[in-house]
Simulated assay, not measured.
Amino acid sequence: MEIQELANTLEAVLFASGEAVESRRLCEALGTDISALEEAAAVLENRYSEGSGINLLRLDSAYQLATKEQYSPHIKAVLEIKRSSALSPAAMEALTIIAYNQPVTKAFVESVRGVDSSGVVNSLVEKGLLCEAGRLDLPGRPIAYATTENFLRAFRLSSLKDLPPLPEQSSQVTIDEVIEAAQAAENEE
Rank of each mutant, 00 (worst) to 15 (best):
R135D: 05
D162I: 06
C131F: 01
A99F: 15
A42W: 11
T96C: 09
R135L: 05
S23R: 07
N46R: 15
E11K: 02
V104G: 09
P103E: 13
C27A: 02
G128A: 05
A40R: 01
I175N: 04
Y145V: 14
H74S: 10
V78I: 14
L129Y: 11
I75D: 13
D162L: 00
Y71K: 01
D116H: 09
K127V: 12
L57Y: 12
P139A: 11
E19G: 01
V120S: 09
T148C: 08
S17Y: 02
S170H: 08
N150E: 15
S123T: 14
D176Q: 03
E189D: 08
N46D: 15
E50A: 08
I175F: 13
T174Q: 02
L56E: 12
P142C: 03
S159Y: 14
N187C: 00
A144V: 12
D33G: 14
D176P: 00
S171Y: 01
D116Y: 13
A41Y: 14
Q4R: 00
R153Q: 15
A40Y: 08
R58D: 04
A77V: 00
I54G: 02
K76T: 02
E188S: 01
R135H: 14
L6A: 04
P164A: 07
F155L: 07
Y48W: 13
F15D: 12
Y48M: 04
L56H: 11
L124N: 07
K127I: 12
P165M: 04
T174M: 02
D116M: 04
A99H: 13
N8P: 00
V78Q: 13
L138H: 08
R58K: 13
T67V: 11
M1C: 08
Y48G: 01
S61A: 10
S72T: 13
C131Y: 05
S171H: 02
P103C: 05
A7H: 00
E5V: 06
P73K: 02
K161M: 13
S49D: 14
A181P: 00
T147S: 06
P103Y: 13
D137L: 06
M92V: 11
N101I: 11
E38P: 00
D33M: 01
T67D: 12
A182C: 03
